[in-house]
Design a protein around this nucleic acid. Structure first.
Length: 465
RNA sequence: GCCGCUAUCGUCUAGGGGACUAGGACGCCGGAUUCUCAGUCCGGAAACCGGGGUUCGAAUCCCCGUAGCGGUGCCA
């Protein structure tokens, strides 16, 4: 299927749980680069460590990638399933003398290094029971990683230990598995986090020992939390799942993530995914760690939300509710199509996230729940005439739309000698339960005449009582 | 300890020797619009880690320092 020249990128998350934001950005960069170069992205699961890898963890990664709409080529490749291929490569390396069995423990290695003036560890072949397998590292010269982002990075071989590539029980370790898998998968481009830069010379040595050509490498700067430390749950959202549950749009998350470590030459900020693919290039990625800042994501999400085709708004809101609040999703789905559309129309210009959008229109899909703080602030005795006047003005209305409602209510402040806010706020609280809502005329129109009037009456009764 | 990476407004970044009185975006502050909150529009404050070089000229190149990060696992 793929000619030798077709770029093949691979995203290789370690399945330790939810897909964190740094991992999501790595996936995105792989995907954008693959798409932009006419290549493909493959998914390789780094599950050599049996304890951290469970089917549930793998499923979470896949769920997150699916939500982000980052597709990959073929089935996910699991290291665990390639044990035989790893064993084969291991046997060949030992036969060639490139690797050797060594029973030395970590303490032994430490002692050796101390005895040799801190030099890098060099063991000797001792085929004892339970001996780990180490790769022979040359004493002379340097291993150079020609990184697309950082340029050539040179690691002196004399500072590199003969490192373990398989456990005493014969199971492969990461640096062996990754080299064999990349070769077999025909990976041409490895785009991954900075934390792997120091591992790269080991993989280069492995690949050379296997007699193969290495892929191209690009090491991305890491992502940090607002305090400069590792990004974690306590920084708010740290995983793709959390972003989804807060009501962000995949397109906005892709846009924001792309901007974390990369900038377009012309300062473009709000970009569709097609624009992103067209402009993105891995060698323009920066080298310094970036801090994840949810405020900018919120803003960007608002932009994408407003740019969304009106016909797409409702399915997006519905999909959000299904994962974030199934109860609300049911109520939303049970309502009429007109009501759903009206709800979407009145929040479109206001909300920055779907979560916020729902909070603003939830009153349309259920009983009013009075926010007592808002009630206490707005529903003073002075509100009674306002509500009565509104009831009267609205009661006689023939057609129930925002324009007609506006025409009916606009004269009230002057007639009652009140500020506009003194008239509109009580109506707002009566009808939505909150002092914050979409425009009052739109709100009343979307609610429908019957519900609007009965809510005002109910509020009036509660106020007088 | 050893090896390696990094360093521009609070944050994301543009910049790759003269076009820099350092540009854009988020956020912040002020103003306009207004029925609330948003949104939108206009304006403003805000940065080249420090020190040495190289050069006629350095945010850009080199060295040292400082700080942060990563690796140094029979983890990935």
């Amino acid at each position: 299927m793929h000619s030798a020249s077709t770029p093949r990128f691979r995203f290789a998350p370690s399945p330790t749980g939810a897909l964190h934001i740094g991992g999501a950005r790595t996936a995105l960069y792989n995907w954008l680069a693959a798409r932009g170069s006419g290549g493909t992205m493959a998914l390789r699961i780094e599950d050599t460590d049996l304890e951290r890898s469970t089917p549930g963890n793998v499923a979470q990664i896949i769920e997150a990638l699916t939500w982000l709409e980052l597709d990959w080529d073929g089935a996910p490749v699991s290291q665990r399933e390639r044990r035989d291929r790893h064993a084969e490569a291991l046997k060949r390396l030992i036969d060639d003398g490139a690797a050797y069995p060594d029973p030395s423990s970590a303490e032994d290695v430490w002692a050796w290094k101390e005895a040799h003036g801190g030099a890098a560890y060099r063991g000797e072949s001792r085929a004892e029971e339970g001996a780990a397998i180490r790769l022979r590292v040359p004493d002379e010269g340097a291993t150079v990683v020609d990184d697309l982002i950082r340029g050539p990075v040179s690691f002196p071989n004399q500072a590199l230990d003969d490192f373990v590539i398989a456990r005493g029980d014969g199971t492969p370790l990461y640096n062996l598995a990754v080299a064999v898998d990349d070769l077999e998968m025909g990976v041409t481009d490895v785009v991954r986090g900075d934390d792997h830069l120091s591992n790269t010379p080991k993989q280069l040595l492995m690949i050379a020992a296997l007699g193969a050509q290495p892929p191209r490498y690009a090491h991305l700067p890491l992502l940090h939390g607002p305090d400069g430390g590792k990004l974690s749950k306590r920084h708010g959202a740290a995983s793709v799942q959390e972003l989804r549950d807060k009501g962000y749009l995949p397109a906005a998350v892709r846009n924001y993530l792309a901007l974390l470590g990369w900038g377009a030459e012309d300062d473009a900020t709000v970009m569709s995914t097609d624009e992103l693919t067209a402009r993105f290039s891995i060698d323009r990625v920066g080298r310094a760690a970036a801090i994840f800042d949810e405020q900018k994501l919120r803003w960007l999400n608002g932009r994408h939300l407003r740019a969304l085709d009106p016909a797409e708004y409702e399915p997006r809101l519905r999909a959000y509710l299904e994962v974030a609040d199934p109860d609300a999703a049911d109520r939303f789905a049970a309502a009429g199509a007109d009501e759903r559309r009206a709800a979407c129309e009145i929040v479109r210009e206001k909300a920055q996230t779907l979560g916020e959008a729902w909070r603003l229109v939830a009153f349309l899909f259920g009983e009013v729940a009075y926010d007592e703080k808002a009630w206490g602030k707005v529903m003073r005795k002075g509100a009674v005439p306002s509500l009565r006047a509104a009831l009267e003005a609205l009661g006689g209305l023939q057609s129930w739309d925002a324009l007609a409602i506006e025409a009916a209510l606009t004269p009230l402040p002057e007639a009652l000698d009140l500020k506009p806010g003194a008239v509109y706020q009580p109506i707002r609280v009566a009808v939505t339960g909150s002092s914050v809502s979409p425009g009052i005329f739109d709100t009343l129109a979307a609610l429908g005449k019957e519900a609007a009037l009965s809510r005002i009456e109910a509020a009036l009764a509660r106020l007088v009582a």
